[in-house]
């Protein structure tokens, strides 16, 4: 993982972005790479790309993701495979694999406020090297950071985040990499795609150019360099909460 002053990773000149498989999409992954992975817990995970990394065999990885898996699924499979050196996240929650490895000291973790996490990634993709935020002032998050007062209120200086790869999952993509997300599976994915040198999309459905109306594009294709079609996803429930069906519904 590197902190950037200017990203400049993408040429925008990829003539053919669609690849045959997730394995092909990550074939140039190297040991020690930093990877942003979309998803809020297990919701919106690029499941095909996550599985492909296990098969690829790259190690010593840095994960930048909100939770780094849960219930032994998603990125927890990387943790359990012993291929992760560091996790940059906001919440460990009930991710017992991460708690255990953190206590053993077998993994490094950097935990930060979720809004700061999102904005650091957004800044990383937007050519903004750092920004001031009120979040974390007067807490452990402020340790070692510049505090500056604007209009009578204190703010922390936070640096932008970028990564070697971003793996995101979208409901629909076209051949240029224009993406449309579904419900709360969107979360960090559009931000991450802007902040990585090699942003890769895994889409449930792939359409030809024109298959997505220009006004329905959530993330323009300029931010995606490779696209793999993955029709089937497990989409596990983390906590299935329901109420009884009403009569006649």
């Amino acid at each position: 993982m590197s902190e950037v002053t200017a990203l400049g990773p993408q040429t925008g000149r990829d003539t053919s972005k669609v690849v045959a498989s997730c394995a092909e999409a990550i074939s140039d992954l190297r040991d020690g790479a930093s990877i942003m992975v979309g998803g809020f817990g297990l919701c919106g995970n690029p499941e095909g790309l996550i599985a492909a990394v296990l098969d690829h065999g790259a190690r010593d990885l840095t994960i930048i993701s909100n939770n780094a898996g849960n219930l032994g699924k998603g990125l927890a499979t990387w943790l359990n495979a012993g291929i992760v050196r560091k996790v940059v996240c906001t919440y460990l929650g009930n991710n017992e694999d991460l708690h255990r490895m953190r206590e053993e000291g077998s993994i490094e973790t950097e935990v930060m406020p979720q809004g700061t996490f999102a904005e650091r990634i957004r800044a990383g993709g937007a050519g903004i090297p750092a920004f001031y935020t009120p979040t974390g002032v007067g807490t452990v998050v402020a340790e070692g950071k510049e505090v500056r007062r604007f209009d009578g209120r204190d703010y922390l200086l936070e640096r932008a985040l970028s990564a070697d790869f971003a793996f995101v999952r979208a409901a629909v993509g076209d051949e240029y990499g224009n993406l449309r997300f579904y419900r709360t599976a969107r979360n960090f994915s559009p931000l991450m795609a802007t902040a990585a040198r090699m942003p890769v999309a895994e889409v449930d459905e792939l359409r030809p150019l024109g298959g997505l109306d220009a006004d329905d594009v959530h993330l323009p294709g300029i931010f995606i360099r490779r696209i793999a079609l993955v029709r089937e996803h497990e989409d596990p429930f983390e906590y299935r909460t329901v109420r009884p069906r009403r009569e006649g519904s």
């Binding site: 817990g41 297990l42 919701c43 579904y182 709360t184 989409d235």
Partner: peptide, 26 residues
């Protein structure tokens, strides 16, 4: 996690793993 206008838990059978709250509940 990216939702304004969150409603109650879904009726049994309508739950969708891609529609969750910050506690990862459907």
């Amino acid at each position: 996690n990216g939702l304004l206008g969150m409603g109650p838990f879904p009726e049994e059978g309508d739950e969708d793993p891609q529609i969750i709250n910050a506690g990862k509940q459907t």
